[in-house]
Nucleic acid binder design. Structure first.
Lengths: 202, 202
DNA sequence: GATCGATGTATCGTCTCGATACATCGATCG
DNA sequence: CGATCGATGTATCGAGACGATACATCGATC
């Protein structure tokens, strides 16, 4: 998930970690924070995997445990997406299955880079997400019905609020889907990877 | 956080891990899941700390790394809260500061066991949580205003939804606070640790 | 008597987080 | 002029959370 987001941002322009974190926080709705303890290891992993490159020579070497802790002077490190990284990104962008929408965080990241996704794939993902959230809602409803008599007022209140949130998400998704459908109907604007003219694949 | 919840549940009756997990999922609003990978280590930690006890003799020994993997027969293990555990729980219940309401997850757990908290402390916590969430809301608003022109439609939509959720939470909290105040006004029902008659400590 | 799903305990590797350390730079202020 | 402060910037550490997985037992269904 983090990797997808990093690839998506570096797609636009090279950046260093600090900048990356700020953009990330902004793009991800300001809620999830992405600490450095996640970011830098992720960058190192991705560099080791060849998805990104740096301007410094000796990166990603996974220093042996006896290295002298590397304190002192550390310069800026600019990360650039490689050809492999772009390839990987466009591979990920093609996914439209549960792995994309079952997890809310991942779905959010995906949505933040939706402009790189074809119109029909967008619709599939949004609908998948809605199904997932609707199932969650059913689970919550059942749970609330089951525990209505047994539980604390506060616990009940907690569940009620959870249910309301999930309900709000369903409504939101439905709006997005409607908009998406309307636009697909009027005229499919050729996106970065435009949908092939096969309108029956839903 | 997990530890607080476990203590809270075991306060009611002894249980084994499986049962604990189910109750946890139910009480926590069905959203957060609590995997076994969190639960069992937590139970072991708590046993080692003397907060809970088991019916089995050789628990919490933190087996040395060369132990034979302990495969095969494993019986049920019933966990019971100890006197120390109860003490710890009642200590935690007295907290009303940011450590309780800054994190949403922790706040949720706290709310689920609100019946163990005195009325005035309940109010302090709810108001603290509302302040925190209101600040989050301001952050989101500022971010949205700042990026309104620059960003993607989908990204914007994501932020808008986030803002709506946060707004919903503020409204919900306000309702809870109103109810709490109304009841404090009419007649403070003596809870487990009833508030001393000092109505001016807000 | 086979199989299936619920009950039940437990570990593993991978990742994430919050806290922290350290360094540089520009601006502000006395 | 020097001090200090907050933003920028890179990085690690320990604690712990998670998903996947393994294994075992039991009752019901077929």
């Amino acid at each position: 998930m983090l990797e997808f987001a990093i690839l998506g941002l570096l797609q636009q322009s090279p950046m260093h970690g600090y900048e990356l974190r700020k953009q990330l926080a902004e793009v991800l709705g300001g809620l999830r924070s992405i600490s450095y303890g996640s970011l830098y290891p992720a960058l190192r992993r991705m560099h080791a995997a060849g998805l990104i490159s740096t301007d410094e020579p000796d990166r990603g070497a996974l220093l042996p445990a006896d290295a002298p802790a590397l304190t002192g002077r550390r310069g800026k490190v600019v990360y650039t997406i490689t050809a492999e990284g772009k390839e990987r990104f466009h591979e990920l962008v093609l996914q439209t299955g549960p792995e994309v929408y079952d997890d809310g965080g991942l779905f959010g990241v995906r949505l933040a880079f939706f402009r790189h996704t074809a119109a029909d794939a967008r619709l599939r993902i949004l609908e998948g997400r809605r199904r997932t959230v609707e199932q969650q809602r059913e689970g919550l409803r059942a749970s609330l019905a089951r525990t209505r008599e047994r539980l604390d007022r506060y616990t009940l209140e907690l569940q009620r609020h959870g249910l309301e949130s999930v309900d709000g998400e369903v409504r939101w998704l439905s709006e997005l889907i409607d908009t998406e459908r309307r636009e697909a109907g009027s005229g499919p604007p050729a996106g970065e990877q435009s949908a092939p003219p096969e309108p029956g694949t839903t």
